[in-house]
């Protein structure tokens, strides 16, 4: 996994609530393996008009936000399907941080395991940040994982919570399997204790 520490980047607003992972990557692209670049699948249908042309009004299609690496979204961002390719599509398109008042639980886990930091901030703070980046397209946000802070375009600093274990893995770019294997003794002991009654 790619490590993440800090970021100073353009933030794109996606203010709608309940943006589901079916919108982030439609189901017909789910058979693509991880090696395939998922950039073009990101919001594939949402960013196009019915005739297939790019929708100029969709935020990701606007010049000021083309190089955005942070997404700021409405509540319950990336709810729904567990498809990890929703994270891959965001990641391949350059995103490393998603800020929202709440996330789908599975997406949040998937993000932390794939180098995409989900940041939960109070609804009024997110609303305020959205207003700032909508009023000034191309405005930048700073994210500091070690300090657990987000600095909005107006300079206001907002602290966020992050699971210490996931933070450690993300800072170091560790994948969990190696770490879990270091607990082999405990797992084997558990398996012996768990006993025959629980074997299929």
């Amino acid at each position: 996994m790619e490590a993440f520490r800090t970021m100073d980047a353009v933030a794109v607003p996606l203010p709608r609530p309940n943006i589901d992972t079916d919108q982030i990557i439609p189901a017909r692209f789910l058979s693509r393996p991880r090696e395939v670049d998922h950039t073009e699948f990101l919001f594939h249908d949402a960013r196009r008009l019915p005739d297939g042309e790019q929708n100029p009004d969709f935020a990701l299609n606007r010049e000021a936000w083309r190089n955005a690496r942070i997404v700021v979204a409405g509540k319950n961002f990336a709810c729904g399907s567990s498809r990890e390719s929703a994270v891959w599509a965001l990641f391949d398109a350059g995103f490393r941080v998603a800020i929202a008042p709440s996330f789908g639980d599975i997406f949040r886990n998937n993000g932390m395991k794939n180098g995409l930091l989900p940041v939960m901030l109070p609804a009024d703070v997110v609303e305020n940040i959205l207003a700032q980046i909508e009023a000034d397209p191309g405005a930048r946000i700073q994210v500091d994982l070690p300090a657990q802070t987000v600095t909005a375009p107006d300079g206001s600093v907002h602290a966020f919570e992050v699971d210490p274990f996931a933070k450690h893995c993300l800072l170091e770019g560790l994948d969990e399997i190696g770490l879990t294997q270091s607990y082999e003794e405990e797992i084997a002991a558990f398996e012996r204790r768990f006993g025959r009654e629980n074997v299929r």
């Binding site: 567990s82 498809r83 990890e84 994270v87 639980d105 599975i106 886990n109 998937n110 395991k113 794939n114 699971d163 274990f165 994948d175 969990e176 399997i177 879990t180 294997q181 797992i187 398996e191």
Partner: peptide, 22 residues
Amino acid sequence: FGIGSTEVAHVLATQTLWQRKP
């Protein structure tokens, strides 16, 4: 509960999963 594919790989390899208590 449902998990992502990185977690599926983790469960395949270790039969365990890291979770924070919901």
